[in-house]
Design a protein around this nucleic acid. Structure first.
Lengths: 115, 115
DNA sequence: CATGCCTATCGTCGTTCTACGATGAAGCGC
DNA sequence: GCGCTTCATCGTAGAACGACGATAGGCATG
């Protein structure tokens, strides 16, 4: 075998279209929106999200190659995105596969749409 | 006359529906989105935006009464929102009338929608 | 003109963010 | 097992943020 021990077709789950019943207004929604917005409040993190969307298959730390930032800095940005729930990381052997969390993205769109 | 010297029906312009031709991707769009997101990356500022939307007529510093923050702090948050282009302030006699900038909001929705 | 209200700005203090290099932990291949 | 790659974490330094009180300016009212 060349590289990957397990092919593991996709670490990123399919879109899945559950309706999401949570309200888009009220104090809780405000906190949610602020949290998402804060996570996206840095160009590097927006670029990471865009990168993960473009290659809908998830890139690992190949993100580092795309950004003019040190590996540790990128790792920190990924941590922020992960804590905000926008991104998920899955361990795949020696590397980590990051991908967008579609539910969070839909939630964000709903919250922004409510403005 | 009791209070206001000029009735001045609305300092907030009508919705106006110009198409907005700017792209929703690319480095410039990333910076824009990050800038908007940063401005909304604080609960108080989300609440201010929601407040200004609810009373579509624009409240002035009555915002201070609605938030558990000092007047100077609210003023700073308004400044951030204004610099991000999300909000506009118009001087109306002794007070200042703030209102949402609909174009910015639509732009934000478009940018988030492109994710 | 003097007073009072409303707002912006200044100065400050503590916290958080952003970036980096260095170090550590985990897994794969030889 | 040994080394290599990959990623996270630590420690640090400088910048930016968030909050406040105090202060200053603008504009109505008296």
């Amino acid at each position: 075998m060349k590289r990957k021990s397990k092919p593991k077709a996709a670490c990123c789950p399919p879109p899945e279209d559950s309706p999401d019943l949570r309200p888009t207004e009220g104090p809780q929604a405000d906190r949610e929106l602020a949290s998402f917005a804060k996570a996206l409040g840095h160009v590097a993190r927006v670029q990471i999200v865009r990168l993960l969307l473009r290659k809908n298959s998830c890139v690992c730390g190949g993100i580092v190659d795309e950004l003019p930032l040190a590996q540790s800095t990128v790792s920190q940005h990924l941590k922020v995105l992960k804590q905000a729930g926008l991104v998920r990381g899955e361990i795949d052997g020696p590397r980590v596969c990051y991908c967008i969390e579609p539910r969070a993205l839909r939630r964000l769109r709903a919250l922004v749409g409510s403005l």
